[in-house]
């Protein structure tokens, strides 16, 4: 464990909690893409299947349980508890455009052709595109509440910190996970234009982010 990965995990947790609290306190999921949240729940489910078979550390196990619980709680709030506030017509991204290539690629490019390994690879590739429905919704509605942009900021920052973690681990312990690194770089690249908007619009105290 290194500071970059710990900071990344904390950012990830903060992002998930920001979103969950926003939905719970505003009792509304307007402006939130339920599809992205479903994809994140699938990412955690397919990645943490070894939750009961592999024990790395108490931290690792606890964080996996927390991420699974919070992501399913978020999906529950969107599609069950506050479903009357869910504007599905804005959440119109075609998930098959993401799932088909990701499933195909995880069968082609993986470390071992075993169910667990393919599901892990699927979760890595899926995570890199899981935010697309949310970013698509923001471009479609042309705006995002500032709390939603803070959620996206921390979510994007977490994988950027993981890249720093991979650089650090490569130089200190020769660790290199090609699939995770390539997918993590792609994932972070998707956030770059958002980061620019976030810094220029939201941090300048504009409150709501309105796209040009």
């Amino acid at each position: 464990m290194n500071i970059f990965r710990l900071a990344g995990d904390v950012c990830h947790l903060v992002a998930i909690i920001i979103l969950l609290l926003k939905i719970w306190r505003s009792r509304s999921c307007a402006g939130i893409s339920g599809k992205s949240q479903v994809l994140f729940a699938i990412v955690f489910t397919t990645r943490y299947l070894d939750l009961f078979t592999v024990f790395i550390s108490p931290y690792n196990t606890i964080m996996k349980v927390v991420f699974l619980a919070l992501s399913y709680a978020t999906v529950y709030l969107i599609y069950m508890r506050f479903r009357n506030t869910f504007n599905s017509e804005n959440d119109s991204f075609r998930l098959e455009f993401l799932l088909v290539p990701v499933i195909g690629l995880s069968f082609l490019e993986n470390y071992a052709f075993t169910p667990l390994e393919i599901l892990w690879t699927f979760s890595i590739f899926l995570e890199s595109v899981a935010i697309m429905p949310q970013l698509f919704m923001i471009t479609k509605t042309g705006e995002a509440e500032s709390i939603t942009t803070h959620y996206l900021f921390f979510l994007g920052l977490y994988r950027a910190l993981y890249i720093a973690n991979w650089v650090w681990r490569y130089h200190t312990e020769g660790f290199f996970d090609q699939i995770a690194v390539v997918s993590g770089v792609v994932q972070t690249i998707f956030y770059i234009d958002f980061f620019y908007l976030y810094v220029t619009k939201v941090l300048r105290g504009r409150g709501k982010m309105t796209l040009p």
Binding site: D50, S57, E173, Q178, A180
Partner: peptide
């Protein structure tokens, strides 16, 4: 590239 260690990352 050096082989990857078991999945110890979240």
């Amino acid at each position: 590239f050096p082989l990857r260690t078991p999945k110890d990352e979240l």
